[in-house]
Simulated scan of single mutants.
Amino acid sequence: MQMNKYLIKGSLFTITSPESVTETVKRIWVDGIEILPEVGHGLRPFYECGFDWGDAGGNRSYTAALTICLSVFREERLAENLFVCFREEFVRHFPAQGFELYIDLTAFLITYKSRLRPNLYSRFCFSSTINSREILLYKDPLSGEVIADLAENYTMHNMMISNERLRKLNERKLRLMFRFLIRDRYRIKGNDFNEVVQKAEEIMSGFYWRSLEKVLRRKYMEKYRN
C-alpha cells in the first residue's frame, strides 16, 4: 500500500431472518479488514447503524464515510472533521452494486487542508441546515474557550460547488444574509463543546423557522396577489 492510498471493498449480502424476512446488508473492508458500522454510529448516533453508498446512499452513507475515515486516519478528531467531505468526494460515487477499488487521498487532503487545522472540531448539531447536521468549532489552545462562527457554518452546505468563483460569491451572499438576520449572535462562545452546541441549536432553530416563515409568506403573497 502506498502512502494515502487504500483499497476499499463494498459488498452486498442477502440475509433471511427466522421470520422469513429478506434483507440486503452492505459490508465494507479497508485494506482487507472489515469495518463495522457500530464504530461510526457510536460517534454520530443520528445516522443509521448500517452502511450504504452511491447517490442513493442516504443517511447510512454518512456512517460509511465516518467509519472508513476512522479506519484510515486513526484519530477521532480528524475522522469527524473529514468524513462529510469524504462522503461527497468518494462514498457518493462508489458503485451501487458492490465494488473493489483503490482511493488516493493525496489530492483530497490538499483540497480540505483547512479541516486538518489543530484545535478544529466537528460536532453534531441537529438544527444545522446542512444534511450532515455538522457544525465546526474552534477551541482556543490557551484559554480553552470554544468558539463557533455560525455564519461560516451556514455557508458550508455549498462547499461542493465545483466552480470556485461561483462558490465564493455564493458563500459571501449566504454569510451576509445570515449575519443580517441573526445580527450580533452569529459568533458564539462557551466553556465547553456541549454549551456552544446547545447555543448553536437554539440560534439555528430560530433562524430556520424565521427563514421558513419568510418563504411561506412570499409564496402566500404570490398566490393571492392576482
Rank of each mutant, 00 (worst) to 15 (best):
E48R: 09
A79N: 06
E48P: 05
G206A: 05
Q2K: 08
V215A: 10
N163Y: 01
Y112R: 10
R117P: 03
S143W: 09
I68S: 04
P141E: 08
F90M: 10
I103E: 10
H93V: 14
L136F: 14
H93E: 15
L82S: 04
A56M: 14
L212N: 06
R123P: 07
F126V: 08
G57C: 10
D31R: 04
I188Q: 00
I35H: 03
R44D: 07
D52G: 12
S114P: 01
R175N: 08
N59L: 11
P118F: 08
F178S: 03
V30C: 05
L150M: 09
V39W: 05
F124Q: 02
R225E: 11
N131G: 12
T24M: 11
I68D: 02
G190N: 04
D192R: 00
T14V: 12
N194I: 00
T111G: 07
Y62G: 03
Y186I: 02
V197M: 00
N131R: 11
G10E: 04
L166K: 07
K26P: 01
W29K: 13
V21N: 12
T155S: 08
D104Y: 14
G98S: 15
I203Y: 01
G144K: 07
D192A: 02
R175V: 05
M160N: 09
E23N: 12
R167T: 01
I161K: 04
Y138V: 12
S143N: 07
M204Q: 02
Y154P: 00
F193I: 05
L43Q: 06
I161E: 04
G58R: 11
G40H: 01
N163G: 05
R172A: 09
R218G: 09
S128R: 06
K219P: 02
V84E: 03
R77C: 13
D31G: 07
T106A: 14
S132K: 00
M177K: 11
P37T: 06
P45V: 06
R187V: 10
L137Q: 01
A107I: 13
R60D: 03
N194F: 01
F13L: 13
I15V: 13
E23D: 11
R185G: 00
V146Y: 04
S61I: 04
R77V: 11
E213N: 05
L78I: 14
I130Y: 10
K26H: 09
T24C: 07
F207C: 03
F94W: 12
P18F: 07
D184A: 10
R187Y: 08
G42F: 08
E38S: 11
L137W: 08
D184P: 03
T63A: 10
I8A: 02
P37Y: 04
E75V: 14
E88T: 11
I68C: 05
L174C: 08
V215H: 10
T106C: 12
E75H: 14
G32C: 08
L166A: 06
E100L: 15
F46E: 07
N4F: 06
V196S: 02
S128G: 12
R115P: 01
G57I: 03
G32R: 05
F99T: 13
S143Q: 10
N119L: 10
E89Y: 15
G42E: 06
I8D: 02
K139S: 13
I161D: 03
Y47L: 05
F108L: 13
I188E: 02
R74G: 15
L12P: 02
P118W: 06
S127I: 07
